[in-house]
Computed example of a mutant assay.
Amino acid sequence: MTEPAARSVWLIADDYGFSPAVSESIRVLLANGRLSGTGCMTLFDDWRDHAAALTATSGSFATGMHLTLTDFPALSTGRKMPELKRLLASHDDDAAIAAEADAQLDRFREAFGRNPDFIDGHQHVHFLPPVRRWLAARFADAPAAERPWLRGAPTLRAAPALIKAKIVVARLLARGFDAEMRRHGFAVEGPLCGFYDWRRKGAFSRALDLFIDRAPHGSVIMCHPGTVDDVLRSRDVFTDAREEERDALAADTFPARLVAAGLSLRQARS
């Protein structure tokens, strides 16, 4: 009899809906059981096409919302949202942030007919106090079975050495988040892993070994697989490393590597 895996983790692809080729790559990985789920960016004009293709994708996986509050035109106003540094310096406009979060959530619900399985944030914006308050208010009356789980604070365990300063900054942003949101009745999954220096060629493959070997039980490992297309290049500087992530997760050796480490991928809330 096969012994059960000692650890299980969420392996979640961020940025579904960022570009056609990114979304297609994520769907292939989902259909082949290489991911636990994906977080959706619902604010772009072609979102409905991405959503329809994801609905048609076979497999058991979590579908969440990747709340986006920076850099792109807002659904609620049409105006470009601030860069992260500006948002962090002036994130006290609860009404504007709540309106944009509502608009993105409504688009998700329109596409799938339900709440997201989970909510996290592009550039970790779900940790911001106004988003915490929006989450608590928006889901105050939702039954437990209809509440999304939330991605929790980062951990320094399983972190590449050269990236730990960045994780410390994210941990400061997330200070108190897990306990606060649990008090509001949310399931918080984590800790968060998956940070690495995507600017260094080959860095993801080395970091993936670290995540597989050292990620604590219950971790959420974020990743950003994809294929580069013109739409992606027009929207982001994080491009070629996405293909390295795609190839590492699609590799024939990946499932055996998980088994050897006593690690399994979660695909439903547990």
Rank of each mutant, 00 (worst) to 15 (best):
H184F: 13
R132I: 13
F139H: 12
A51H: 07
L232R: 05
G113W: 02
L258Y: 04
V168S: 10
S58P: 05
I26D: 01
S23H: 03
H66A: 12
D230M: 13
T38R: 00
K166S: 14
T77D: 06
K85G: 06
E180W: 12
R269N: 06
V169H: 08
L105Y: 02
G59R: 00
I212H: 04
S19D: 07
A62N: 04
D120P: 03
A53C: 07
E244W: 01
A136S: 14
Y196I: 01
V237M: 10
A99V: 13
H184A: 12
H50R: 03
F254C: 08
V125F: 09
V9G: 06
P255K: 05
K164I: 12
D45S: 14
T155L: 10
Q123H: 15
A101D: 09
P20F: 02
R214D: 15
L67E: 05
T63D: 00
R109K: 13
E146I: 08
C193Y: 02
P143L: 11
D46V: 05
A111D: 11
K80V: 14
S90E: 15
T2R: 13
K166G: 15
A187C: 07
S60Q: 03
H184G: 06
P143C: 11
E243C: 05
F44E: 00
P148A: 07
A207Y: 05
G185P: 12
V220D: 04
L208M: 12
A161P: 02
S25L: 00
F108V: 02
R147P: 05
L84A: 14
L263I: 08
A187W: 01
V237D: 14
M65Q: 14
R79M: 13
F177A: 13
V220W: 03
S58Y: 00
V228A: 07
D236Q: 08
E244P: 01
A215M: 07
D45F: 03
A256L: 10
R138E: 14
S234V: 14
R182M: 15
G17C: 11
F127C: 09
P82E: 10
A142N: 05
G33E: 05
R157Y: 06
D14L: 09
D197P: 04
H122P: 07
E146T: 10
L75W: 03
V220K: 04
T2M: 11
P255S: 10
R206T: 15
R107Y: 04
T68N: 08
M181E: 12
D240A: 15
V9A: 08
R34M: 00
R242Q: 11
A136L: 14
A241G: 06
R79I: 04
G190P: 12
I167A: 08
D247I: 02
Q123W: 02
V169E: 14
R138H: 15
L128Q: 12
L265Q: 01
D236E: 15
V169G: 05
H122R: 09
E243M: 03
L265T: 01
S234K: 11
A179L: 13
L105H: 03
H184W: 11
A268S: 12
A51K: 01
H91W: 12
P20Y: 02
G176M: 10
F112W: 05
D197M: 07
L67C: 11
R214M: 12
A144G: 09
S270M: 05
V259M: 10
M222H: 06
A99E: 11
S234N: 09
A95H: 10
W198A: 05
T70M: 10
S219E: 10
D92M: 07
